[in-house]
């Protein structure tokens, strides 16, 4: 856990109702989708072979079989575990709207993904007597990845953004300041290039692309394509501190975030260990619901924000940015 050089204020729990609401509705939505898919599958019981294909080999032919009940149960249990995990993250660490959005989108996506997998894979097996003749699965998987992106984005948009909570107390006195004349205006700009996460991303793209090509499951090329788009947006960020507050923005425009100056309790520098604190690189949620924009480990700008929220960005020369943000936050009071 990152230590701040400041005494910690009493915990602000105003985020809890927001987090619990999203944890509940997105969890219910995810479960309804999984169970809906399961019910459709079970309604086809009479039309399906006695054992259904449950796993497909690299040649596109099924190589694993199980009873319909087991197959559906495995998918439902997977869904329940995933959705419960996402909801738990939101319930305990949903301090920031960004976390709640990610959870809303993830629960709906995984629910819809499993529903499409269940229904799609069994649709092909209706009327078969021997599941070994079940057709190629690649198209279903590609569909199951892509189609749920639509409701997932809708779910993310349904989650309200961070409420505006202007700080009532002044910026902490022990936080560093930039000496600035009253009439002076200032901005601090810094670019952050993606670190080790990019290597992981490139490897993941290469592996998924090679897998799709080698197995001739062409529809699965959607995975490296989606990963490439994601990686491109995580390649370079710009961090900006100006009179309006702190902006962190991908050079492609998304993802981005903004902390208004009047919501800054204190900015400081810290040293981040991306793996230990956030479980990896990228845009992440860490312990205490802290948002981490951590393309690398090391020097970082830590912003403690109203509403129990905090955000950390790994960026060089963070001390300059922190001091200026504190000064401009003073002005915003």
């Amino acid at each position: 856990m990152t230590r701040t050089p400041f005494p910690t204020a009493p915990a602000d729990v105003s985020w809890r109702p927001h987090a619990r609401r999203v944890a509940l509705w997105s969890g219910v939505a995810g479960l309804v989708l999984v169970l809906g898919g399961a019910l459709v599958a079970l309604s086809w019981r009479s039309e399906l072979p006695s054992t259904v294909a449950s796993h497909w080999g690299s040649d596109g032919h099924p190589n694993g079989f199980s009873s319909l009940g087991t197959y559906v149960a495995v998918l439902v249990v997977t869904g329940v575990l995933c959705v419960a995990g996402f909801s738990a993250i939101c319930w305990f660490w949903g301090h920031a709207a960004m976390t709640r959005r990610m959870v809303g989108a993830s629960s709906v996506w995984i629910g819809a993904f499993l529903a499409v997998i269940t229904v799609g894979s069994l649709w092909n097996q209706r009327g078969l007597t021997d599941a070994a003749h079940a057709s190629d699965h690649g198209g279903v998987v590609a569909l199951a990845i892509l189609v749920p992106l639509v409701p997932a984005v809708v779910a993310a948009l349904l989650v309200p953004g961070d409420p505006r909570i202007a700080a009532t107390a002044p910026v902490r006195v022990d936080a560093a300041r930039t000496p600035l004349a009253p009439s002076e205006r200032a901005v601090w700009l810094r670019r952050v290039r993606g670190g080790p996460g990019l290597v992981v991303g490139v490897v993941a793209i290469a592996v998924t692309a090679a897998a799709a090509v080698l197995t001739h499951l062409w529809p699965l090329l959607v995975v490296p394509v989606l990963l490439t788009a994601l990686l491109a947006s995580f390649t370079e960020f710009e961090v900006r501190v100006d009179a309006s507050g702190l902006h962190v923005r991908s050079l492609l425009g998304w993802p981005r975030t903004f902390v208004p100056a009047d919501e800054v309790l204190a900015a400081s520098t810290t040293t981040v260990n991306a793996f230990a604190e956030f479980g990896g690189w990228g845009w992440r949620v860490g312990r205490g619901g802290r948002i981490g924009i951590v393309p690398r480990s090391g020097e970082a700008l830590l912003v403690e924000r109203t509403g129990g929220r905090s955000l950390v960005v790994t960026v060089d020369d963070a001390a300059t940015g922190a001091a200026l943000l504190n000064t401009l936050a003073d002005r915003a009071r």
């Binding site: 205006r185 901005v187 700009l189």
Partner: peptide
């Protein structure tokens, strides 16, 4: 880098 201007500085 940090950029600062003062419109009143002349």
């Amino acid at each position: 880098m940090i950029w600062r201007i003062d419109p009143t500085s002349g």
